[in-house]
């Protein structure tokens, strides 16, 4: 575990990977099992409210984990809100065009994934702050475009009504969110356990070296963007279907880029368990604070991000003492 370096030299990084064992997957499975059991707990009179918090915790998990998948390829993006929003708006507009929801959902995800290829192609050669600034600007512009489309198309600044997902049945909605988180976890594990892991990690840790070793950065960077953004769009679909009403300001809010980034760093970058765990902790903290103050509850994310950078560069995953545990999943 890395203590804080006075010089601040401890990079945000993962430990060198060891061979993987099945044991590493156990906490992940336990977390998913607990999440699956949640609606069956005796939740009492506040069941509906608690279920809603749990629903958005799952959405936060999808966002954080999908953000992490992109970060693994060295692309620290501030555009996740854009793809979340494109998913939400794409879904709403596809429903308006008459598509059934079960079709609108994957199509919206694929469309957002396609849009991410445009951003990815433009930012291909950018790194560090240039990349961050470009992605931040991209989000603002997608929002501006949606907001300035004729109101008859996308509702303008006011927003759009979205039919409730699954007829508004909150247990069914929860089950769907759980399924999509489980799917995201599977995708993340697939990325971790296949050649994609080596490609992403090599690009992140030394782009030029990776190219010299034959890693096609164009292909893998775009692939990372596509996977990550499609999953973020699925989270956006869940959001749109749960809140019935979407507007540009909230849907494309910077908060939707900040939260996944912070959650992933807090939980443990470049892992599967970390972002999911981080979402569990941070989303609940956010809700508790939201209960007592009306505005500014996102302060949690600012604070946690700063503290993580200064004192906890490996996030929660770095706290585990058991190093024999095998590679972080």
């Amino acid at each position: 575990m890395s203590a804080r370096n006075v010089e601040g030299g401890t990079p945000v990084r993962a430990a060198p990977r060891r061979e993987l064992t099945l044991g590493a997957a156990l906490p992940l499975l336990a977390f998913l099992a607990l999440a699956a059991l949640f609606p069956f707990l005796p939740l009492g009179s506040r069941a509906e409210f608690l279920l809603q918090i749990a629903f958005f915790t799952l959405v936060a998990g999808i966002m954080a984990l999908s953000w992490d998948i992109l970060a693994r390829s060295g692309q620290v993006s501030l555009a996740h809100a854009a793809f979340y929003g494109l998913g939400a708006y794409g879904y709403a507009l596809l429903l308006k065009a008459g598509l059934p929801w079960a079709l609108a959902m994957p199509v919206a995800a694929l469309l957002a994934g396609g849009a991410s290829l445009i951003l990815g192609a433009v930012t291909m050669r950018l790194s560090g702050m240039y990349f961050a600034i470009a992605t931040l600007a991209f989000t603002e512009v997608v929002r501006t475009i949606i907001q300035n489309l004729p109101e008859s198309v996308a509702g303008g600044a006011t927003g759009l009504l979205v039919p409730a997902l699954l007829g508004g049945n909150s247990r069914a909605q929860y089950a769907l969110a759980w399924g999509l988180l489980a799917f995201t976890v599977l995708v993340s594990l697939a990325v971790r356990l296949t050649r994609l892991h080596f490609a992403f990690a090599a690009i992140r840790q030394g782009e030029e070296t990776a190219r010299v070793l034959g890693v096609s950065i164009v292909r893998f960077k775009l692939l990372a963007f596509f996977i990550s953004s499609s999953l973020a769009a699925l989270a956006g679909v869940l959001y749109a279907g749960k809140t019935f009403f979407i507007n540009p300001l909230e849907t494309f809010s910077l908060a939707n880029s900040i939260a996944p980034l912070t959650t992933s760093i807090f939980g443990g970058l470049y892992t599967t368990l970390g972002p999911v765990l981080g979402a569990g902790v941070l989303r609940v903290a956010e809700e508790l604070l939201h209960n007592s103050v009306k505005n500014g509850y996102l302060v949690v994310y600012g604070l946690v991000l700063m503290l993580s950078i200064l004192w906890l560069p490996r996030g929660l995953m770095g706290l585990r003492r058991n190093k024999k545990h095998g590679g972080d999943l």
Partner: peptide, 26 residues
């Protein structure tokens, strides 16, 4: 030398073996 800092020695070499020629299996 430019090793990938967050990888083991074996993983470093695996990157070369995996991507040096198209169509290699992990």
């Amino acid at each position: 030398v430019r090793p990938f800092p967050e990888m083991t020695v074996h993983e470093n070499v695996t990157v070369g073996a995996l991507f040096g020629k198209p169509g290699q299996r992990l």
